Every structure is written in structure tokens, then in C-alpha cells.
Amino acid sequence: MALDKLTIVVEADAGKLQFNQRDDAHYIAAMFNPKSLGVNRSVQWESAKAAKRDSPELQYTTASPATLTIDLFFDTYDRADANKPSVYVHTKKLADLTLVRGDKHRPPVCQLFWGKQGMIFQGVLQQIDQSYTMFLENGVPVRATAKCTFLQWRANATDMKKQNLMSADVAKLWTVRRGQTLASIAADEYLDPANWRDIASANGIDDPLALGPGTTLLLPALPAGRPASGGHRKKEAP
């Protein structure tokens, strides 16, 4: 039974996000499987500002994309063939993952697969550290290691489907439409137009009347202990 090798499938150069494991031009197979995988993820929490509290409630603010680190080993010397090709043909494929390609105006997204686990990570190559450790007499490198760090990548539409963004305790972005005011936006988002002041404060707005269509606003999460009322609506701000 053949040993399952870790593989990196690179997205197609054009069109929507798509992958084809049968396309050799967008497929990288590890010569030797890594000995370990490192996965790191962090989230940010802030203490709610409250008086007379020894341990204020923590409020979730945001998260950083997960990272995956792997060390890959390449060797073109240890082979029966007298011809020892440069190991650069393998390491270059990895280095190319940091280059802008196709019409996407960014480096490609990658999917990592390994055995029965299937896809273990989807992301972009954030950093690569290559070390060439063995050379032929003519200077051709035949052995190398590559330490790779992949940063998790997920399309905005896909990420939003996984979240419940209707809740008032989640910060959001809002694009102003013609005729909208801070109060009407607060009424739609928080069910209380009086919360327009929270929006103004979060966006540094001194004049609520100077709100033009197309403006992008940050709608902050309501302070802890002050949920959206959903009840009667107070008089709107100008």
C-alpha cells in the first residue's frame, strides 16, 4: 500500500475560486511527509468597562486567521540515477505560491490534503524560509528544507454564512444609502433610533447631518448590559 503524501493543491489562475487535483501545473506533492504540523489561532477579548467590578465580563471583539506551519524536506541526490537534478525544481513551486498569478491580482489560495483526513487546511502562503543544505561539486543544490507558514483564508461570503450577524452584540459594517440617517440606521440595526450616538461615536462623526450615500460605517456592538430595546422608539436625531 502506497504511503499517502501530503499534497498542496493550488487554485486555478482565472475565474472563481476552484481547485483541480488532476492539474499537475497546480499540484505540489511533498517528497517526504512532514514530521509534525503546527496550528495556531488567537482571539481577542476586552474587559467590559464597569465600575465596582473585580472581574469585569469579557467581550469578544475579533479573531485572527489560523496559521499552519510545516517543514518540508526535498532531496534529489539520494537516487540511483547518476544524473542529480537541482532540488530547485521542487522548492520553486513553493516559492511561486507567494507571487501574484493570473488575473486575481494576488497570490493563489491553496488547499492542503493528507490521507484520509482529506483537506486539512485552506489558506495562502504567508511566509517561506528555504535552506539549501547540500550541493554538487558544480554548485547545483540537491537537498533543501522549506519552513512554510500558511494563513487561513475564507471568502467573505462563506464566512458571513457561518455567522449570525443579525445580533446587535456583533460589530458590522454598513454602507449608507440615500435618505438614511444615523437614527434610521440605528432603528434598523438596534431597533432603537436613540442608539445613533453609539454609531456617531464609533465613527468619529461630529455632524450627523453630513452623512452622504456610499459612506461605510462601523456599527459597534452595544455595550454589555444594554441590549437593543425592540420596544418603543425615541425621537430621531436630525
Results as ranks from 00 to 15, higher is better:
residue 191 L to G: 05
residue 137 E to T: 12
residue 201 S to N: 10
residue 45 W to Y: 15
residue 35 K to D: 14
residue 99 L to M: 13
residue 34 P to A: 04
residue 58 L to F: 06
residue 114 W to K: 08
residue 213 P to G: 08
residue 43 V to N: 08
residue 135 F to W: 09
residue 29 A to V: 12
residue 25 A to S: 14
residue 206 D to P: 00
residue 21 Q to K: 13
residue 16 K to C: 01
residue 47 S to A: 14
residue 30 A to N: 08
residue 159 D to W: 12
residue 155 A to I: 01
residue 70 I to G: 01
residue 235 K to R: 12
residue 175 T to E: 15
residue 12 A to E: 13
residue 224 A to F: 05
residue 87 V to K: 09
residue 32 F to W: 11
residue 99 L to P: 00
residue 9 V to L: 10
residue 155 A to F: 03
residue 198 D to H: 14
residue 188 D to P: 00
residue 195 N to C: 02
residue 177 R to C: 06
residue 98 T to G: 10
residue 155 A to L: 11
residue 139 G to T: 07
residue 156 N to H: 09
residue 127 Q to V: 06
residue 85 P to M: 06
residue 200 A to C: 04
residue 123 G to W: 07
residue 212 G to I: 08
residue 198 D to Y: 15
residue 204 G to P: 03
residue 84 K to E: 03
residue 185 I to R: 04
residue 17 L to C: 01
residue 83 N to R: 12
residue 8 I to H: 02
residue 6 L to K: 05
residue 2 A to Y: 10
residue 70 I to Y: 01
residue 154 R to Q: 15
residue 35 K to L: 11
residue 102 G to F: 01
residue 95 A to E: 13
residue 104 K to F: 04
residue 221 A to N: 04
residue 57 E to G: 02
residue 98 T to A: 12
residue 188 D to L: 13
residue 231 G to N: 08
residue 55 S to H: 11
residue 9 V to A: 06
residue 108 P to L: 02
residue 150 F to T: 02
residue 232 H to P: 05
residue 76 T to L: 12
residue 130 Q to W: 05
residue 110 C to L: 04
residue 29 A to I: 07
residue 89 V to A: 13
residue 80 A to V: 10
residue 169 D to F: 03
residue 115 G to M: 08
residue 2 A to L: 10
residue 183 A to L: 06
residue 93 K to V: 02
residue 77 Y to F: 15
residue 17 L to S: 02
residue 76 T to P: 07
residue 129 D to P: 00
residue 182 L to Y: 09
residue 103 D to A: 03
residue 221 A to P: 00
residue 86 S to D: 09
residue 153 W to N: 06
residue 94 L to Y: 14
residue 148 C to M: 14
residue 116 K to Q: 11
residue 206 D to S: 14
residue 152 Q to K: 10
residue 188 D to G: 05
residue 212 G to H: 12
residue 208 P to N: 03
residue 145 T to S: 14
residue 175 T to K: 15
residue 167 S to P: 00
residue 174 W to A: 05
residue 214 G to T: 07
residue 85 P to D: 08
residue 153 W to K: 05
residue 15 G to K: 07
residue 219 L to G: 01
residue 32 F to G: 00
residue 214 G to F: 10
residue 225 G to P: 05
residue 156 N to G: 03
residue 20 N to V: 06
residue 59 Q to W: 02
residue 23 D to C: 05
residue 94 L to K: 09
residue 71 D to N: 13
